[in-house]
Nucleic acid binder design. Structure first.
Lengths: 140, 140
DNA sequence: CTCATTGATTATCATTTGATAACAAAATAA
DNA sequence: TTATTTTGTTATCAAATGATAATCAATGAG
């Protein structure tokens, strides 16, 4: 296994992913979310409930800026007080946020279905396995 | 194969990749390149020679903005006239650009080697195969 | 040849994002 | 208790990025 070649393949791969996701999340643009706001909402949608500092840490956005963006997203999120530590906030999607992310995800999903139209069931299993392998061993 | 589950896995996967690449390309920050400039240079490095409109198309940056960024990158790139179509430019990395990207890639590679330290040869082959599968069938 | 199209540039403006300082409240350590 | 750390907010400034109009030269279609 030529590690150098593998490395270049990974660079090309990640670049390709960035391009494809850009393509797909363009749909999200119709929601008037900025890319950063979309990223934040996506993170909340997947990991909720989260705290502000979790968002800040994971997405590498400073706390002041995270706070600012969350304020802009106020209609899409809700903050619940954390009983154990009253400094912390439990942030999760509001009804409106859930509804909007559902629409966005639906749009992205539709795009993806187009992509896998021609893919056989066996190949889908292969893709699924490939995702697991890379998630486990490379992009954790 | 549950397509819905697969789709969510893909969303989580691409988000993970974005986070990891963010982590890795932070190294590139020491080069004083902005994220956009890095993206452009990376694209040139991988696909050179390219034209300005290719960069614009592939990275979804308007031509005026691409032109502006390329001007900022002038020390790292060279423009050669295209004999067939004199409107077009053949853009490739300059000596300085090659040198700098080599440093950046080296830094990223080092990070990646850390990640695959504990991975066996068999698993590397598996990773390589997984990259091929996803590149072919999903992120083309 | 004339006209529309393509590839690229310059200038300009608005928006988004990043960075930092100053602050406050809750929690924890001393 | 007091001091320190963690979590979050507000305000402000600078930089990066996006968007658009005007322009130009080369190309290709008619």
């Amino acid at each position: 296994m030529d590690q150098k070649a593998l490395f270049y393949k990974i660079v090309a791969f990640t670049a390709a992913i960035h391009r494809v996701t850009h393509e797909l999340t363009k749909e999200a643009k119709s929601t008037k979310l900025t890319p950063l706001q979309y990223k934040i909402l996506e993170y909340i949608a997947v990991d909720q409930p989260v705290t502000l500092s979790q968002i800040s840490d994971c997405l590498h956005i400073s706390m002041p800026n995270t706070s600012r963006e969350l304020k802009k997203l106020s209609t899409f999120i809700e903050k619940t007080e954390n009983k154990e530590d009253r400094r912390k906030q439990s942030i999760h999607l509001s009804k409106a946020g859930e509804a909007m992310m559902a629409v966005v995800f639906q749009a992205i999903e539709t795009q993806f279905r187009k992509r896998i139209q021609t893919v056989s069931k066996e190949e889908l299993v292969e893709i699924d396995h490939a995702l697991d392998v890379l998630s486990d061993k490379l992009f954790y």
